[in-house]
Structures are given as structure tokens and as C-alpha cells.
């Protein structure tokens, strides 16, 4: 119970701080953010967009880890854990794509411009979509678990390629890209210490939130499976 209150306070603080703290030219007080040229007020998205994108990758990673565990131990609970994580990952993937696209409209002038990061998150969306399409097409429980575990491992292996392939093919607009010199808050550390503090607090809060929802979600899936089995037995 205590940590739920702690998470609530942390998320509330991060949200208020991220939205309301003023951006000034020369930050003096601890609650002031520096003005990053080229981004200005748009820079605030880092507190909410980057954690969702991070969770997309984390959820995919956890899903692959539990897929691997399933293949090793053949325990159907592991498959449900992987499935719950993939569901959450899909949610955060959509959130990251939409928030990123809305931000891009104001920062770059168009919702979608096939920036390397945009293409990568699009590929992740496709992988998640394919995984759910595969799951829904198979009837048998164990067969579904095995095939989707195999597919998510194969998909996970191809992900690192996007990191190397994309920047060579497309020009990067995203803050932190290789060619980006003016507006790279993450890479060049143009953020001051208070901005960094809020950013990392936000990352921690979102990560706790993910593990919490994930736990509830796979527990409910397992309970649902058990009830189904009892109903079938009569």
C-alpha cells in the first residue's frame, strides 16, 4: 500500500513539474528549466514521451524473456506473463507514436516524416500487431504459446538492426540523432540538473507503473484461464 501512495505522489510531482515549471534563459532557482534553442516549450515532452517509448522497448524485452522461459519450462503461466507484457507494450507503443506525432506537428511541421525513430516505432507497432494476429489465429493453448514465443524471439532478434540501418537510410530529425547538433538534449546534455532529475524521476515512476499494471494484468489473465478450465470441467 505504501509504495502505491509513493508512486501516486511521484507521478503527480512529475506531471506538475514537467508541465508547470518555467523555462527561462538563465536558470537560477532549482525549479527552473534551461531554454534549449530550437525546442523551447516543446522540450517538455521529454518527461512523458521518452518514458512511454522506453516502456515500449522494456515491455517487448520482458515479453521475449518470458517467451524464452516458456520454451524452456513449458509453463503456461509464463506465456500469459509474456502476453500481458506484449499487451501493455502495444498500449505504450501507440501512446509513444501518437504523442510523438503530435509533437512532430509543432516541432517539425508535419505529423509523420519517416524519421529513423518514427520508422523504428512503426516497425515495433507492426511486430506487436503481427504477434496479436498470430495469437488470435491459433486455437490450441500450448500451440499458441509455443508459436507466439518463437515469433517474438525472432522479432526481438531483428530489432537491433533498426538502430544501425535507419540512420544510414533516412535523415534524422529527432532530438539526439547523429546529425543533430542544435537540439540534442539527451545526447549533449543541454538539460540542467533539475531537468535531468525530473526526467529520471519520470522514468522511474513510469517503470514502477509498468510493473504494477503488468502484475495485475497477468494475474487477471491467469485467474481467467483457471475459471475457464473449471467451467469446462463442469
Amino acid at each position: 500500500m505504501v509504495w502505491k501512495i509513493f508512486l501516486f505522489i511521484l507521478l503527480a510531482f512529475v506531471s506538475i513539474a514537467g508541465i508547470a515549471f518555467p523555462i527561462v534563459e538563465n536558470p537560477q532557482a532549482w525549479y527552473q528549466f534551461p531554454n534549449i534553442p530550437g525546442l523551447e516549450q516543446n522540450a517538455r515532452i521529454i518527461f512523458f514521451h521518452v518514458p512511454t517509448a522506453w516502456l515500449t522497448v522494456l515491455a517487448f524485452f520482458m515479453s521475449t524473456v518470458f517467451s524464452f522461459k516458456y520454451l524452456k519450462r513449458k509453463d503456461l503461466d509464463d506465456d500469459l506473463k509474456a502476453y500481458a507484457s506484449a499487451q501493455l507494450g502495444m498500449t505504450f507503443c501507440i501512446l509513444a507514436t501518437v504523442t510523438g506525432a503530435v509533437w512532430a506537428k509543432f516541432a517539425w511541421g508535419s505529423f509523420w516524416s519517416w524519421d529513423p525513430r518514427q520508422t523504428s516505432i512503426f516497425a515495433l507497432l507492426l511486430i506487436y500487431g503481427a504477434l496479436f494476429a498470430l495469437r488470435s489465429s491459433i486455437e490450441g493453448e500450448e500451440k499458441r504459446a509455443t508459436l507466439s514465443a518463437v515469433y517474438s524471439i525472432i522479432a526481438f532478434v531483428t530489432v537491433p538492426f533498426f538502430i544501425f540501418v535507419m540512420p544510414r537510410i533516412m535523415k534524422g530529425l529527432h532530438p539526439g540523432s547523429a546529425e543533430d547538433s542544435s537540439a540534442g538534449p539527451v545526447v549533449n546534455f543541454q538539460m540542467n540538473s533539475s531537468m535531468l532529475l525530473i526526467f529520471f524521476l519520470s522514468l522511474i515512476a513510469f517503470t514502477i507503473l509498468y510493473f504494477w499494471i503488468w502484475r495485475i494484468s497477468y494475474k487477471s489473465l491467469i485467474i481467467k484461464e483457471n475459471i475457464n478450465k473449471q467451467l469446462i470441467r463442469g
Partner: peptide, 14 residues
């Protein structure tokens, strides 16, 4: 094609 496309995407792009 739905399952293959994300897997083949890095290969096709390069």
C-alpha cells in the same frame, strides 16, 4: 505477409 514483413524490414531496407 503480416508476420514476415516486420522480420524482413531491415533486410529489405538495406
Amino acid at each position: 505477409p503480416v508476420l514476415s514483413f516486420p522480420i524482413l524490414l531491415p533486410l529489405i531496407l538495406s
